[in-house]
């Protein structure tokens, strides 16, 4: 790891977790180097975080070095709109489904991955739902009808008020006695 730290600006976050930020231009080559030259042979997770106020996504490739029992998260900022990143399926075949998920949930494109069809959503036409601007409540209100519930349904807030009032009067009665 020390050798690698001389070549890259790697930050140690915990005893077994390291992080490295790279540009989108050097992302694929860095991952290629780590995969074939530095024994980070496994991709465990591909993450995406939406920093909407900074108008960018942060991708995170969690690589694992099984010999040293450590994880290295290679992170990369990308724009939020119409951005395509080079697919890493040729380096890590398991990335195929991970990229498919991020494509559906965030709208990130992965060039070289030709299986970016539906993941968990079927015929989804709306905004990718994990983007921060996707309003879950507005979507639910416009697509579903609310049911009133059972006839004997209780107003929870009203019940709490009644319970608190009863406890208060019981306490006062106890104090008076």
């Amino acid at each position: 790891m020390q050798n690698l730290m001389q070549h890259f600006e790697i930050i140690q976050k915990t005893p077994t977790l390291y992080a490295l930020h790279v540009s989108i231009e050097t992302l694929f080559n860095t991952l290629h180097h780590l995969r074939y030259q530095s024994d980070f042979i496994t991709l465990s997770q591909l993450t995406c975080t939406d920093w909407i106020e900074e108008e960018r996504f942060e991708l995170g490739y969690m690589l694992t070095n099984l010999e040293r029992n450590c994880n290295l998260m290679v992170k990369c900022f990308i724009g939020r709109d119409d951005v395509t990143v080079a697919s890493v399926v040729t380096l890590f075949p398991q990335a195929e489904v991970m990229e498919r998920e991020l494509h559906e949930m965030f709208g990130v494109g992965f060039e070289g991955n030709d299986t970016l069809y539906d993941f968990a959503l079927e015929d989804w036409q709306d905004l990718p739902p994990m983007r921060r601007e996707f309003d879950t409540l507005a979507y639910v209100q416009s697509h579903y009808d609310f049911r009133d519930g059972r006839d004997d349904n209780l107003d929870v807030k009203e019940q709490i008020k009644i319970r608190k009032a009863a406890a208060k009067s019981a306490k006062e009665a106890q104090g008076g006695a």
């Binding site: 995406c48 920093w51 995170g60 991970m98």
Partner: peptide
């Protein structure tokens, strides 16, 4: 679990990595 905070009381991002994604697909 991947977890990212943003300085607020909300969690900015929490992403689960279970065995099932890779086992169920790849």
């Amino acid at each position: 679990y991947y977890m990212a905070g943003d300085g607020s009381e909300m969690i900015r991002r929490m992403q689960v990595k279970g065995p099932s994604l890779i086992h169920g697909f790849t």
